[in-house]
């Protein structure tokens, strides 16, 4: 598979990168690790005029511990996340998620920024045109039909990132910079929930860093992922959980996030409310997992059927909550 033609931009500073983005806007595609973008280029899912390489930009690396937060540069590789003792120790769900992304050589190339900003996927979409032509043009390719759901009025492609659900479980934020300004938004707000345009980042913005609020006291987290093979595969269902206890051993805060369950990672808000003030017990976790199931969406567009994947969201939600609870005990 050959790459389509493009002009190559290699800014040497963030400032220069922002200026290039401002100039080229919709005609530029950012590339960092390349593990997703190069594939999309080869399959002709995108054909930008400009490819802007940010891998060598200074100031986008490093995992730094501040008083109130942990700051991770957008170009930090997934292997660095996996190997960070700070994250393994105190933000376990994030390290666990990184541990399960693709395979080590790919996680060595792939960056946290790129992983978060990955596009949605579907068996009817991530193919070259020769295979699918005769079936019609789907919403995500600019057509008006859904090949996965007959008569589907919208796109049902699935967000399959592993890292975002784990970060969202910690209520993490990201820094988006553009020429002359920057904004910090919760990572969950990066997602539009639309399969055709799953990300809300603007065409002149650059994601430069991730901010994880520091946690204190008794808390724990976990990430669980279902896949057919022990390596390489994207999730078929996933769940990240964060639990914090008050002094009396009851749940002071809990966040359950599900992945591979729709066009965006989803916070199971009802679960947070339902668990609040309860002891972290299996029965309540099961009820929370049911809420995750209710919130999940699954159609037949990945390796296993949508019905099954939804059921697995429930199982993994329960297991993530249990894993988070075990992580608390370990920490105490």
């Amino acid at each position: 598979m050959k790459l389509p033609p493009f002009q190559y931009l290699e800014p040497s500073t963030v400032l220069e990168a922002l200026s290039m983005l401002d100039t080229y806007r919709d005609t530029v595609q950012i590339i960092a690790g390349g593990t997703e973008v190069v594939n999309r280029l080869k399959l002709r899912l995108i054909s930008p005029d400009y490819l802007m390489d940010i891998k060598k930009l200074p100031d986008l690396g490093g995992i730094a511990e501040h008083e109130q937060s942990i700051v991770i540069g957008a170009n930090v590789s997934l292997n660095e996340i996996r190997d960070s003792s700070l994250l393994q120790d105190k933000y376990k769900a994030i390290a666990e998620a990184a541990f399960q992304v693709a395979a080590p050589p790919l996680a060595n190339m792939g960056t946290i920024g790129g992983n978060i900003l990955q596009n949605t996927r579907c068996l009817f979409y991530n193919q070259s045109e020769i295979v699918l032509k005769g079936l019609g043009v789907c919403h995500k390719r600019g057509g008006a039909s859904c090949l996965a759901v007959k008569g589907g009025k919208r796109c049902f492609s699935v967000y399959l990132g592993d890292i975002a659900p784990a970060l969202i479980a910690f209520d993490a934020k990201c820094v988006l910079e553009k020429s002359g300004s920057r904004r910090t938004i919760p990572i969950i707000d990066l997602f539009t929930g639309m399969g055709t345009q799953p990300l809300s980042i603007e065409n002149n913005e650059l994601l430069t860093g991730i901010i994880i609020p520091k946690q204190n006291g008794a808390y724990g987290s976990a990430y669980r992922k279902l896949r057919i093979r022990g390596s390489i595969d994207y999730p078929l269902a996933s769940a990240a959980a964060f639990l914090a206890l008050s002094a009396d051993g009851k749940l002071a805060a809990s966040r359950l996030v599900i992945g591979a369950a729709g066009c965006a990672p989803k916070v199971v808000a009802r679960a947070s409310a339902a668990l609040s003030g309860k002891l972290p017990e299996d029965a309540d976790f099961a009820a929370a997992a049911d809420m995750a199931y209710e919130l999940s969406e699954g159609v037949d567009n990945l390796a296993l059927p949508g019905d099954y994947r939804r059921k697995m969201v429930r199982v993994l939600a329960q297991r993530a909550l249990q894993g988070a609870r075990a992580d608390i005990k370990r920490g105490m």
């Binding site: 068996l123 193919q127 005769g134 093979r229 390489i232 994207y234 390796a303």
Partner: peptide, 23 residues
Amino acid sequence: MIYEKGHLKNGNFLDYKMPTAKD
């Protein structure tokens, strides 16, 4: 091999599940 009306949907090494060393 997952076919939809004769069209192969998983004709690649990501979606066709050939076992890895961890399997």
